[in-house]
Nucleic acid binder design. Structure first.
Length: 957
RNA sequence: GCCGGUGUGGCGAAAUGGCAGACGCACAGGACUUAAAAUCCUGGGACCUUAAAAAGUCGUGUGGGUUCGAGUCCCACCACCGGCACCA
């Protein structure tokens, strides 16, 4: 690229101010109860210098958060600074508005790449991570963001993950109480049950409880009872061990959560994932499904993001219905005590149309009901279905497969005998793993019935009689739905559902149920570079393995030192290689799985509140202040009026949409657990959330190495500087939109900054500076050679100048409230285009303009603010804490205005009228217009519309 | 298939139901310069006329509607982007 003349010496200005901010800790945020240094500009602004005050004397908080990055070896890409610039602008704006702003940054630093590098080279992942963090820090600092670096967090720091492990112990030592619908300490479990006999009976399937109640343990040894008790309690924990089939990714050598599997492939790397039964730690997120769903209504997120979470949680209302198995009961194993198969359906109104039943191949009844003739076919099908990966299962979705078991069930509404099939389109993990098939009114059942020639019976009449009822799945009117005891005919779908469900409940054949797609969170990984579980495994006298939590006093539990980071040859996680670490002197063993990367990011926003606290994840006072429960003073107020509308939770959270059902769901879940247990004071962590849009390459395609269209932020910084980079990222278009990069556009905003520079400085001194720089490059002292423009004077501004300034104040202030950064910047361009023409540039106007510019282009604004300090004796505050200028509407009032005049809705003239004109005069003047007269000639005016001070429309005929 | 979003100049975009295209890019012409770069000034939706202009016609994905007036509100449709997808 041909290097053009530098618009202004950003290469000296930007490092200068970055170092100044660093040295003076300009952007340090103060917690309640923390002393504020004598000379800190925040203290000076709020008359708190040298004081130590509590929440009620601090200004109100504003917590503005970025999704912290994974510090990859590739460094920053242009997408990172997009969100970071937006939040930085708002953080600086809120500071100027008098808020106490919390704006932190940190590192989500556990993860696969550092571990894979370690496997290849033997370099400890911590070393790789540290190098990457150092690089990210340098890059982020070079953009001039106003982070409070004293609160920096790193998920791989033992001082940090001590608390990640601590929260895991809270999950481990809690259960979800079905009555209170909240996480409850596990110690209270037995108390809670014994206090409420009814509850106890609800848990009647549990051997421990029924055993206690019914005296079944009379012949048991105390050890046996203890084992049963332990197993019962373990089953209730929010963190529990499960043996179920899990998503195993052979390529990555680890299991994955459902959320990490997309189209049967790993989210990271796109490798195939298969189902494999393994012993794994799970977190009981499903217990919170209802609250995670309902509380979405209390937070200010985009519609689409809420929808994604709603879809993921996947609530559906319906009924469970029991179908009796037909035939000779004596042939069936004892396990089928009730001799019934339970199905879940959202359409109980179609029960009369159920012509067959389908079980998932893995359904536990399958071996017991299959007839001898069908045994081979069923076994073969089960093998076939189990051998399919998730990917194959979805890719082959087009063609339905299945086999008949030879068994029959009885439809409870009409006594019909219907065949029981197995097919892999029924999932074992959803509902009851069994369905009643209504082929007439369900697409999948319809396809299946067609393929296997099963009867299709209409029970719903479409609202439009012309619609084909076969495969009709919408609501309609029930038909052919008469049994000996109940009839649904002529009822609309909603009523039919209600009637049949009431009937089922009355007869004890079924009940209303709500099902969720959400599955429990698979929480263990076969990795080295993650948080070790604070769990040890023991054996009781009978040789049964059981787990126990480490005491909190032993946290953090550090991972062992390893020479080889690969899994063991027999497939155990890498931690199993550290025999000294795994095997404890008393014969117990450590858990060798580690936590997933999401663990650290589930709560990092809480650590920022009080990042150095060694006695708690965050102090109570800090938590209450920053999360908005304890409120401070209103900004710019001397009275003790409380900020009653303080926002609970993080005020604004900005990040990419890729975390919609991962980080954002997990973090909400953990937050609710901590809320239930009394450790945080809000039910939701992030009040307002905005997704920044994707930045595409110049060719309009997604940036990728293979396309060769990747823009490197470092190159842009060298060429145009950080301020221009920040400005361009915001000027491209609305924050939320996807938009293509255009380097020419960077030049545009760069030119604007150059114009601002020339608005302030004397051109002759700039030439002098440039000549001096050829002999002493990079000498920051040379900036002193730059003199203020002689047009800048300490004089009262003219009305026109004030108008120009206040139009800008108004627009920028309003646009920042709505995150319309692009139009705020254009307003400043309009101002500078105007001001550059002024022969006299009043210093008061320019100072106010710099306060507006500061959030966007902080380095340039600081440099010019400093230059202006020489113009008069007035001491000026530190720019980042200078009060935001107040918009005065009186200054925008015009004496004359231009009014469009339409004839029959078409613009015909624009007339100049006095601003205080009344409607009658306006109408008269509009009619008098020569151009308008031309269109009125020979016609009569039928109607006149006058919008006061806006426009006139003459209707003629 | 379902859900969400977006369609405006050559391009990024802007417009509480009231002058469509602010601001910027690219482009063209001019000033400055030996020349270039930088800077400054001017121009511009399309069409039709014209030496040039004025005047005129059309114009915000498509088709309808509401309204004195629609990019904006309503109905139907089309295209693109994102998410989910055998969830009973």
């Amino acid at each position: 690229m041909a290097s053009s003349r530098r618009q202004y010496p950003f290469h000296l200005i930007e490092p200068k101010w970055q170092q100044t901010w660093d040295k003076q800790q300009t952007f340090r945020a103060f917690n309640p109860g923390e002393p504020i240094p004598e000379n800190h500009p925040f203290g000076i602004r709020h008359n708190l210098a040298g004081k130590m005050v509590h929440a009620d004397s601090l200004p109100p908080k504003f917590y503005i958060l970025d999704m912290f990055p994974y510090p990859s070896g590739a460094g920053l890409h242009v997408g990172h600074p997009e969100g970071y610039t937006a939040t930085d602008i708002l953080a600086r704006y809120r500071r100027a508005r008098g808020f106490n702003v919390l704006h932190p940054m940190g590192w989500d630093a556990f993860g696969l790449p550092a571990e894979q590098y370690a496997i290849k080279t033997g370099q400890h992942p911590r070393k790789t991570t540290e190098a990457n963090v150092a690089n990210f820090t340098k890059q982020i600092k070079s953009l001039g963001f106003s982070y409070d670096w004293s609160r920096e967090v790193n998920t791989t720091d033992p001082k940090y993950f001590k608390w990640t492990q601590w929260i895991f112990l809270k999950l481990y030592n809690s259960y979800f109480d079905p009555e209170w619908k909240k996480a409850t300490p596990i110690d209270l479990l037995e108390d809670a049950l014994s206090e409420n006999p009814q509850r106890k009976s609800e848990w009647k399937n549990n051997a421990y409880l029924t055993g206690t109640r019914d005296g079944l343990f009379e012949n048991s040894t105390p050890e046996e009872r203890e084992q049963i008790r332990r197993e019962f309690i373990s089953k209730c924990r929010l963190a529990y061990v499960s043996e179920a089939p899990v998503n195993w990714c052979p390529e990555l050598g680890t299991v994955l959560a459902n959320e990490e599997v997309i189209d049967g492939k790993s989210e990271v790397g796109g490798f195939p994932v298969i189902r494999k039964p393994m012993r794994q730690w799970m977190l009981r997120i499903t217990a919170f499904a209802e609250r995670l769903l309902n509380d979405l209504d209390t937070i200010d997120w985009t519609q689409s993001l809420k929808e994604m979470q709603r879809n993921w949680i996947g609530r559906s209302e319906g009924a469970e219905v029991d179908f009796e198995i037909a035939g000779d009961r004596s042939t069936v194993a004892k396990i089928l005590v009730d001799w019934k198969i339970r199905v879940f359906t959202t359409r109980p109104d179609t029960l009369f149309g159920a012509t067959y039943m389908v079980l998932a191949p893995e359904h536990r009844f399958v071996p017991h009901i299959t007839t001898a003739e069908q045994k081979k076919a069923v076994e073969d099908y089960k093998t076939f279905a189990a051998g399919k990966s998730d990917l194959e299962r979805t890719e082959l979705a087009k063609e339905k497969t299945g086999v008949f078991t030879g068994a029959y069930a009885i439809n409870p509404v009409n006594g019909e005998k219907i065949p029981i099939w197995i097919a892999d389109y029924v999932l074992a993990s959803y509902g009851t793993g069994a369905i009643m098939a209504v082929p007439a009114h369900d697409t999948r059942d319809f396809e299946f019935a067609q393929k296997f020639n099963l009867p299709i019976l209409q029970v719903v009449q479409p609202t439009d009689p012309k619609t084909n009822w076969q495969g009709y799945t919408d609501d309609g009117i029930a038909v052919n739905s008469v049994g000996s005891e109940v009839s649904l005919n002529d009822l609309a779908t909603a009523e039919a559902k209600k009637k049949i469900t009431d009937w089922l409940e009355a007869k004890g054949l079924g009940k209303r149920t709500i099902n969720y797609k959400l599955r429990d969170w698979l929480f263990s990984r076969q990795r080295y570079w993650g948080e070790p579980f604070p769990i040890i495994w023991k054996k009781d006298a009978a040789g049964n393995l059981y787990h126990e939590a480490l005491p909190e006093s032993e946290l953090p539990l550090l991972p062992p030192k390893l020479d080889d980071y690969k899994p063991t040859p027999d497939g155990q996680p890498p931690l199993a290689r550290a025999k000294d670490w795994v095997n404890l002197p008393d014969g117990s063993m450590r858990e060798t799985n580690t936590m997933p990367q999401w663990a650290g990011s589930c709560w990092y926003y809480l650590r920022y509140l009080d990042a150095q606290n060694s006695g708690a994840f965050a102090g109570k006072e800090a938590e209450q202040y920053w999360m908005g429960v304890a409120s401070g003073l209103r900004p710019d107020s001397t009275k003790s009026a409380r900020n009653a509308d303080a926002i609970p939770g993080v005020d604004l959270y900005v990040g990419g949409t890729e975390h919609a059902v991962l980080h954002l769901l997990y973090a909400r879940f953990w937050h609710k657990v901590l809320f239930d247990l009394g450790y945080v004071s809000t039910p939701e962590p992030f009040f307002k959330l905005v997704n920044q849009g994707l930045i595409l390459g110049e060719d309009g395609q997604k940036m990728s190495k293979s396309r060769g269209n990747v823009v490197n932020p470092d190159d842009v910084l060298v060429e145009y500087g950080a301020d221009a980079f920040r400005l361009y990222e915001m000027f491209m278009g609305p924050l939320q939109d996807t938009k293509p990069w255009n380097t020419k556009g960077v030049e545009g905003v760069y030119r604007f900054l150059g114009r601002v520079w020339r608005l302030f400085v004397e051109e002759a001194s700039e030439t002098e500076f440039e000549q001096a720089e050829t002999t002493a490059p990079e000498n920051r002292e040379l900036l002193n050679l730059i003199k203020l423009n002689a047009a800048i004077k300490d004089v009262a501004p003219t009305p026109a100048q004030l108008k120009s300034l206040h139009a800008c104040i108004k627009k920028v202030s309003e646009d920042l409230e709505t995150l319309s950064f692009n139009t705020a910047i254009s307003a400043m361009m309009v101002f500078s285009n105007d001001a550059i023409k002024w022969d006299v540039r009043p210093v008061s106007v320019l100072r106010d303009f710099l306060i507006l510019l500061q959030p966007f282009a902080p380095h340039l604004a600081e440099e010019l603010w400093q230059k202006l300090s020489g113009i008069n004796a007035q001491p000026s505050p530190a720019l980042p804490y200078a009060p935001w200028p107040k918009f005065n509407p009186a200054l925008l009032v015009e004496t004359e205005m231009e009014i469009p005049v339409q004839v029959n809705g078409k613009l015909r003239d624009v007339i100049k009228v006095p601003a205080d004109i009344d409607n009658a005069a306006l109408e008269a003047q509009a009619k008098a217009s020569e151009k308008v007269q031309h269109f009125l000639a020979g016609k009569t005016i039928k109607k006149v519309i006058v919008v006061p001070k806006k426009m006139v429309n003459l209707i003629v005929g």
